[in-house]
Amino acid sequence: MVWLSDEPNFLTIFFYILTEGLFVTLALTALGLLIGFALGLLLALMRVYGPTEIGWFASGYEKIFRGIPVLILIFIFAFGIPRLFWYLEPLERPMAGVILALGLRSAAYQSQIFRGAILSVQPGQTAAARALGMNGFQSFRHIVFPQAIRLAVPSWSNEYAVVIKDSSFAYGVGILEMTRAAFDISANFPELLSLSMGIVAIIYLIFTYPVTKLFGERQTKKLKDFGMGGG
């Protein structure tokens, strides 16, 4: 409790959690989503365009990572594989493990998001691109992908909300993020447990609801106006 006063109130707790934990929470979320995006897109491409066996591999991956609780994944990647992050400082290893766990799991969900988005680009779009003389890659790169990304935005904003909430499991391996910061307060002031948990809940809400509202509903309406997707 570096600067928390003797009698913390709503505002001091609020800002304590933000200053101590927000950056790490957002960093875990951003890096997890980034890994999930790169790998998820690759898995989606494997399932949509790859040969059957490659598709099986990708869908097997999805089943495994969707079927394991995120806390277990975090334990596995933070502590369970001893020499996984041998090149990092010992104190940085749990952090890397959490990011990897969040990323690998998000990839399983993002793969489904992108697969659905690619498949809901109307087949006539590809036909028109190929008829112009584009090769398969060009038609994906310039026609299908730009539309699929737009179609994926509503589901993707939901995935962002899932990952930022699940980053709170980093608490389990001792990383100081928002949940840990809130818990530290109640460790020092047990009577403030309800208040500090309530406040951290509000902060998570602030970072989830408006985003899903904005990118979910507004983008869905926008896509409809553009006449995109399977209708």
């Binding site: 109307q122 006539g124 779009q125 036909a127 028109a128 691109a129 190929r130 008829a131 112009l132 003389g133 584009m134 090769n135 026609i143 730009p146 539309q147 737009r150 553009f226 006449g227 995109m228």
Partner: peptide, 20 residues
């Protein structure tokens, strides 16, 4: 075939304009 298709224009029943 891509080079050949570039020499054959096509107009579709449902237009198939690129919606983005």
């Amino acid at each position: 075939l891509n080079a050949m298709r570039a020499k054959i224009g096509m107009v579709f029943q449902h237009f198939n304009l690129f919606s983005h």
